[in-house]
């Protein structure tokens, strides 16, 4: 890598009280504040309709925030700057490659529009195609390359204009599961190599963990938790985050002092499974699946299903009775 490639480029992003209400009064995004330092990769994670794509489009300039909201790049208000002049790189779920152009023509299109001379354009396109590992496909029409290759062409095309911010709208969800997993790692590596400020939208929590420096978990038009992947996984802010990110057990119960109803959340790896003993919580194993490194058990605890993980060498079988304890430090209780 040359020095230029490793230098962080891209702008810092600030979003101030930006909300979006659609005609008809549907609030897609409540007024939101967000700060992203230059070079950071933020993942917007949430179910469909949570407002993550709406927020991405506000940053892109494909939609204007409700009055009072503002989008700033490097401290400069770009709220009224149209997308054509905002210098944002976009990667779409459908990739949106131009079907009438080759791989190289797609990647070079933004530079061509900007009137860059052909020689420097060709050099830059060659450099980018090298970086994404598609140099030998440069003259192919884009309908004759694979889904994973298309995704990389879309990424190279977006990067070519040296955008201030790179915006990725579910760029992996059009792929099948096995390829998605492989490309998630690939994409995370490329984004770090480009060292660019990026916002990546997804509904896949494993993808969010792999790609984001930080994750903003969104629900019903709001950011409900903003933190590192570890924060979000280990210290979920509320019931929604606890249920949405990773595998989570939930057991209903009562809060002792006020006798309020609450739910306890804990991860399979926080469950300690031992031989049945008097005085402990006893459960029945209803299913045991071997995963190589560990064994995933489904336990029946007084009519509630609980997932637990035990070392693979422990010979636990369906029908066995076991005792079960949950590490209190890894137990999250949220009132219902």
């Amino acid at each position: 890598m040359t020095a230029e490639e490793t230098t962080a480029h891209g702008a810092s992003l600030s979003i101030r009280r930006a909300g979006k209400t659609f005609p008809g009064g549907v609030v897609a995004l409540a007024p939101t504040d967000l700060d992203l330092p230059a070079g950071e990769i933020l993942v917007l994670l949430g179910p469909s309709g949570c407002g993550k794509t709406t927020l991405l489009r506000l940053v892109a300039g494909l939609g204007a925030p409700d009055p009072g909201g503002a989008v700033l790049f490097d401290g400069v208000d770009v709220t009224t700057v149209p997308i054509e002049r905002r210098r944002v790189g976009m990667v779409f779920q459908s990739y949106a490659l131009f079907p009438n152009m080759t791989v190289a023509e797609n990647v070079g299109y933004g530079l061509k529009v900007r009137g860059e001379p052909k020689s420097s354009r060709d050099a830059e396109v060659g450099r980018l195609l090298d970086m994404v590992g598609l140099a030998e496909l440069s003259d192919r029409p884009v309908d004759r390359i694979s889904g994973g290759q298309r995704q990389r062409v879309a990424l190279a095309r977006a990067i070519a204009i040296r955008p201030k911010i790179l915006l990725l709208d579910e760029p992996l969800s059009a792929l099948d599961a096995a390829l998605r997993e492989k490309l998630r790692i690939e994409l995370a590596r490329l984004l770090r190599r480009f060292a660019i400020t990026a916002i990546h939208v997804t509904h896949d929590q494993a993808e969010a963990m792999a790609i984001g420096d930080r994750i903003a978990v969104m629900n019903q038009g709001r950011i409900v938790q903003l933190g590192t992947p570890e924060d979000v996984y280990v210290r979920p802010a509320d019931r929604f985050v606890a249920g949405f990110v990773g595998v989570m057990n939930r057991l209903p119960g009562r809060l002792l002092p006020g006798c309020g109803v609450a739910e306890a959340f804990f991860r399979p790896e926080a469950v300690a499974v031992g031989p049945p003993e008097a005085g402990s919580v006893v459960a029945m194993v209803t299913a045991a699946t071997f995963f190589g490194a560990y064994r995933r058990l489904t336990l029946d605890v007084a009519g509630h299903a609980v997932e637990a993980e035990v070392p693979a060498e422990r010979p636990v079988r369906p029908g066995d009775a076991v005792s079960l304890a949950v590490d209190p430090a890894r137990l999250h209780v949220f009132p219902t």
């Binding site: 997308i83 054509e84 976009m90 459908s94």
Partner: peptide
């Protein structure tokens, strides 16, 4: 695909 036009716009095309 409306994303085709949006992609072209993001690349600066009028």
């Amino acid at each position: 695909d409306p994303a085709l036009v949006e992609a072209a716009r993001s690349l600066g095309a009028g």
